[in-house]
């Protein structure tokens, strides 16, 4: 791959998401309204239940993580969803660009937007609930965030795969996969309370390990090995998704998905 050319193509997807984001009033809802509303709803509930500081921390870590992932993954999914909604998929796929370049570009904007969400919620959690986000230290916090960004990429790519497989029927996945993860990965409660089959599923999702890792700095059990598990799983899933994506792309070129979704 010619590097400058490859970088320009990656940048194209980032610019596309950026322009549409800044022009769309609903994107403000995505990064400000919903995360803040969700954050305060749960935060005030902890206040009402008179939970101690550790428990409040436990829950706020989950809420912040959930918002970061939701905002970042939707940007990755948008890279094809915008084309799907505008019926312009075929023009993107006739260009000499690899879809992973598009995904990478969109992911960069996702990281930027979700980092804004992280900063905002961190600030609010300190001001409103006295939660110290920086207690784990900058290094562990950055590793935790990196994990969340990669998990977002995994979810976003899954949505892209589903869109190329099922077209419009799959767009709902962009909003529902994260909620499903919230149920299983221990956003609001420890996964130990889950029934055995769900517990096994939770252990197969990297977010579980990253949450446990960060919570270990707030008085809950856990250690650095959790990061290894989390990143290890991310690596495996990224490899699987790369193979799946290639297969789905070939299928799309065989079945005429790009043409059907551009009419």
């Amino acid at each position: 791959m010619n590097l400058p050319r490859g970088l320009i193509q990656i940048w194209a997807a980032a610019i596309k998401n950026w322009i549409i984001t800044k022009r769309n009033v609903f994107s403000l809802f995505e990064i400000l309204f919903w995360p803040v509303v969700g954050f305060f709803s749960v935060g005030l509930l902890t206040h009402f239940l008179k939970l101690n500081a550790d428990m409040v921390g436990f829950i706020l870590v989950g809420v912040i993580s959930m918002s970061v992932i939701q905002v970042c993954q939707i940007d990755v999914a948008y890279v094809f969803l915008y084309d799907l909604w505008s019926k312009s998929l075929k023009h993107t796929f006739i260009a000499p660009v690899h879809p992973f370049q598009l995904i990478l570009g969109a992911w960069l904007i996702g990281i930027l937007r979700s980092f804004v969400v992280f900063l905002l919620l961190s600030l609010l959690s300190t001001l409103a609930f006295g939660f110290d986000v920086l207690r784990p230290g900058l290094g562990p916090l950055l590793l935790f965030l990196l994990g969340l960004f990669f998990i977002s990429a995994l979810i976003g790519i899954s949505v892209c795969i589903l869109v190329l497989l099922f077209g419009y029927k799959a767009e709902v996945a962009a909003w529902s996969i994260t909620s499903l993860m919230a149920l299983i990965c221990g956003i609001y409660y420890p996964i130990s309370i889950l029934p055995s089959p769900l517990l096994q599923i939770a252990r197969a999702i990297p977010l579980t390990y990253f949450l446990e890792y960060l919570r270990s700095f707030y008085g809950f059990s856990g250690d650095g090995k959790l990061l290894g598990w989390g990143f290890g799983q991310i690596g495996v899933y990224l490899a699987i998704e790369a193979i799946l994506f290639k297969m789905v792309l070939r299928r799309a070129r065989r079945t005429g998905v790009f043409i059907k979704l551009s009419e």
Binding site: R5, I15, I20, R23, Y82, I94
Partner: peptide, 27 residues
């Protein structure tokens, strides 16, 4: 390259922005 009847491009991008986007995709 291709041009089709009933053309569709990103709706919320201007003429210039659409051309820049595809120009970048072509490197």
């Amino acid at each position: 390259n291709i041009s089709s009847g009933n053309a569709n491009f990103l709706w919320s991008l201007t003429v210039q922005e659409n051309l820049h986007l595809y120009g970048m995709l072509y490197g």
